[in-house]
């Protein structure tokens, strides 16, 4: 019974993931990405990890998707609706994808304890919270430091560099003053 929703969610995810890479229009690709992420969230939900599903929707769709869309809207020069997504180097990309798939498949199959029973509905949000700030507190803190560093880095990169003595470089003389001096 559970395999039907799982299969549906997986199908939607795969299909939209394919559309992300195949879509010639960048905006469409971004929106298909949203559906792919939503499908992943549905997979989590079907598997009983509702907290993960919620966080997936909140962060990936509410955050990452939105930023992608804003990025497209602001940075792309577009005449009309067509925002082409060029894809170059199909062969190289294919090689990299196959290699990545192989590595991931090997890593997953080599991970011990995968066939253990799922945590099931007993794993409440409270347990996850306790685990995060209890057992795994070091990893949690390291991740938060990483995010902080990333944020600072982004601010440093985005900050406009002022030309050092900034009044002298752009000495502005009104045109009328020049004309008067000439006369």
């Amino acid at each position: 019974m559970e395999s039907i929703p799982f299969g549906l969610a997986a199908l939607v995810t795969l299909f939209s993931a394919l559309r992300v890479v195949r879509s010639p229009n960048l905006v469409h690709a971004a929106l298909w990405l949203g559906l792919a992420l939503l499908g992943t969230a549905a997979l989590f939900a079907v598997l009983g990890a509702s907290f993960l599903a919620g966080v997936q929707v909140l962060l990936y769709i509410g955050g990452v998707m939105t930023l992608t869309l804003v990025g497209i809207m602001i940075t792309r020069r577009h005449d009309g609706l067509n925002v082409p997504a060029e894809s170059i180097g199909h062969v190289r990309a294919g090689v990299v994808s196959v290699a990545l798939f192989a590595v991931l498949a090997w890593a997953i199959s080599a991970t011990p304890g995968l066939d253990a029973a799922p945590l099931g509905p007993d794993a409440t949000t409270q347990d996850i919270g306790h685990a995060l700030v209890g057992t795994h507190v070091l990893a949690f803190e390291v991740v938060s430091m990483l995010l902080l560093a990333a944020m600072l880095g982004a601010i440093v990169i985005a900050r406009r560099k002022d030309p050092a003595p900034h009044a002298v470089t752009h000495l502005h003389v009104p045109a009328t003053a020049v004309r008067e001096a000439a006369e």
């Binding site: 949203g34 599903a53 919620g54 966080v55 929707v57 909140l58 769709i61 955050g63 998707m65 409440t124």
Partner: peptide
């Protein structure tokens, strides 16, 4: 009665961005 109801509310509420964008972009 979701165990993570608040997350659901925030997540689905956050999804409103997508129709907004689709309408704004799609209208040309």
């Amino acid at each position: 009665d979701l165990d993570v109801g608040v997350l659901w509310v925030l997540g689905i509420g956050g999804l409103m961005v997508i129709p907004t964008f689709a309408a704004g972009w799609g209208s040309n």
